[in-house]
Design a protein around this nucleic acid. Sequence first.
DNA 1: TCCCAGATGCGATAGCGTCGCAACTGCTTC
DNA 2: GAAGCAGTTGCGACGCTATCGCATCTGGGA
Lengths: 173, 173
Amino acid sequence: MQVGKPSSGRSDFPPRVQAALSVLRTQHERVTRARQAVIEVLDGTEEHLAADEIVARAEASAPGVHRATVYRALSTLGELGLVTHTHVGGSATVYHLAVPEPTGPATSVPHAHLQCTNCQAVIDIPADALDSLIRRVDREVGFHVEPHHAALLGLCADCRRSSLPETGQKPQS
Amino acid sequence: MQVGKPSSGRSDFPPRVQAALSVLRTQHERVTRARQAVIEVLDGTEEHLAADEIVARAEASAPGVHRATVYRALSTLGELGLVTHTHVGGSATVYHLAVPEPTGPATSVPHAHLQCTNCQAVIDIPADALDSLIRRVDREVGFHVEPHHAALLGLCADCRRSSLPETGQKPQS
DNA sequence: TCCCAGATGCGATAGCGTCGCAACTGCTTC
DNA sequence: GAAGCAGTTGCGACGCTATCGCATCTGGGA
């Protein structure tokens, strides 16, 4: 990161960042330092980042960027379809860049999320695991499930093995 | 409601309330006014109640009951398996009484939840709608999904019909 | 370079939930 | 029926996530 000062026409951005910025321009949305920083942060990781964490990391390319600004940037980018968010647990929300690699549709394939109520780990699963559920719910109650939008809760393999026989641990969520 | 002053041995409680209270006694947990009130509130409705709403309704049988006390009661009842909770949207958590009618296993059948991100409505679906997903996830990643524990988000039938062609509405979650 | 709609920084505010602590009370024992 | 104590309650403070209003700043079109 920090490969130079962010000038909006800069061409040394990673491909997905460039793609996202050009969508902004196409949509007549302003390309600001805060938005660039948020996109760079999301592009630079495979993790599930909470807003908090995005603010912290955005400091690198946009020093002094404010929480509220990051929330607003995430909201704008979400409306443009550049970012998706997922509600995990009962509290935090995590964000993803929804821009495919221009070099091929390899990364950021649609996926759903599982979260362990014991260790809080978030696990990705292919979105198609929910296909039959989605079809059934659509057919029976006309509801359109967005599989990425909320994490399914439960116990991960590790926690099932280790914490079930009474250790002092207690699940949170 | 309010059919008399709450004395712990009282026998004019609805059957599920009595059943829940007797579980408390069996487990050597104290039967307090706050816990009784919470159980009565949950027994008295089919709605999905948030903690907030439970506090308000509990006022009837336990005047002055405090938010923190209701949260603690819900937590204790949850550990005993008498109450389950579901995370809906990104914020509120809703609670259910998990005590079956002693007269038959009719009500409080296991169910999962859908929530509309546009109108916030919560829809119940039979838990078995998730069965194949649960089996697949178990088989492939060893994760045990608890289908009631988090709502699946998406768009309900009404909102798909009415709000999709650009009305001014914007989804929240 | 000018200009202004739109974005930002900031602090205040709101909602949900938890914590520590002193006072109270179920429940057991006598 | 009274005593004692561990567990529960009431209360306010606190933490976290997220949003809002408003004055200031700035991206980008002319």
